[in-house]
């Protein structure tokens, strides 16, 4: 019993120590918006885990490279809207092997002057994207796994 307690304490200790970061997700996100003649981008792995020093390549509809840059420590990269551009722009983020993301800015977005309300709406969209997975989704996922397990058990029993 003493040995069991020792292992329970050690395992609990590891599990408590592990989630030291609030950074949750491991998807890659690039978000871009237009403001004051500039294109602003913010790249992250979700939940304020910024994609630092990652390369961004901007291409037009014909896949011609329009601009290249690198994100800063907060995952930001901004640049002036290229002149004489008559195409949608695709911003490609390379956040390491296997971790790529894209964001498309339409022609219309590039030439329009967004109001404060539009920018607020865009920011809300960004926050929604960066949100950590909700507890409901986690519990829902586990529930589905067990449901599938039960179905497998039922099918196997039926077969035998």
């Amino acid at each position: 019993m003493k040995i069991k307690m020792k292992y329970i304490v050690i395992l609990s200790f590891i599990l408590v120590l592990l989630p030291v970061s609030q950074a949750f997700a491991h998807r890659v996100i690039i978000f871009a918006w237009v403001e004051d003649g500039m294109i602003h981008t913010e790249s992250s792995f979700g939940s304020k885990s910024w994609a630092q020093n990652c390369s961004i390549t901007v291409v037009d509809e014909k896949n011609k490279v329009v601009r290249k840059g690198v994100t800063d420590r907060k995952g930001h990269y901004s640049f002036k809207i290229p002149e004489k551009i008559d195409s949608d722009l695709v911003l490609k983020l390379d956040a390491g092997p296997g971790h790529h993301a894209e964001w498309r800015l339409s022609k219309e977005e590039l030439i329009s002057t967004p109001s404060k309300k539009d920018i607020k709406k865009e920011m809300e969209k960004k926050e929604e994207l960066e949100k950590a997975p909700s507890v409901y989704k986690i519990i829902g996922g586990i529930f589905i796994i067990f449901l599938l397990g039960l179905s497998a058990k039922f099918l196997k029993r039926k077969k035998s």
């Binding site: 592990l18 950074a23 885990s49 986690i138 996922g141």
Partner: peptide, 12 residues
């Protein structure tokens, strides 16, 4: 389920 949840545990 453990595998499903493990990817959510990040370590800095």
């Amino acid at each position: 389920s453990a595998f499903f949840v493990a990817s959510l545990i990040h370590i800095n």
